[in-house]
């Protein structure tokens, strides 16, 4: 449980920083004018971070390999969401562009992951990653 606790306060800190500082940063830059940080961008960003945290925690706690893969996928989607949020903030479409590529790469990973999991399952008839711990110090 302690792992999750650390995760939560880490997110809050990032959250607070990004929210607090973002407007200051955006206001200052004279580069393509970034609009003020509307409330919903903050919400989506927080969602993205929470999603990332959930994915991370899921990856740490779950023993089943497929669920572990799902949690990594979740982390990928969290990043994609962050891209969308920032795209919305900057009113810039390249965020969306990135999301599309993220999806393709996530798909490739999924194929690879499931291939591996099947390979392992055929070898040891179990999906738990505990079974695979021979290589150690």
């Amino acid at each position: 449980m302690t792992g999750i606790a650390t995760m939560m306060n880490m997110i809050n800190t990032i959250n607070s920083i990004s929210i607090a500082a973002a407007p200051a940063a955006t206001a200052a830059t004279t580069a393509p004018m970034a609009p003020a940080m509307p409330a919903n961008i903050q919400v989506t960003l927080a969602l993205a971070i929470i999603l990332f945290a959930i994915g991370l925690v899921g990856f740490l706690t779950r023993r089943n390999m497929i669920l572990m893969f799902l949690s990594t996928e979740l982390m990928f989607q969290a990043a994609a969401l962050a891209f969308v949020a920032f795209g919305r903030m900057w009113m810039d479409l390249s965020g969306q562009l990135m999301v599309i590529f993220i999806l393709t790469v996530a798909a490739a990973e999924a194929a690879l992951a499931l291939g591996l999991v099947v390979l392992l399952y055929r070898r040891k008839e179990t999906l738990s990653s505990e079974a695979w711990a021979e290589l150690k110090e």
Binding site: F52, G55, A78
Partner: peptide, 18 residues
């Protein structure tokens, strides 16, 4: 890689451009 991607996201957030 997911962490890297989140990092890219934040970089994009800070500068607004890829």
């Amino acid at each position: 890689t997911a962490t890297l991607l989140l990092g890219f996201a934040f970089l994009y957030g800070a500068t607004g451009t890829l």
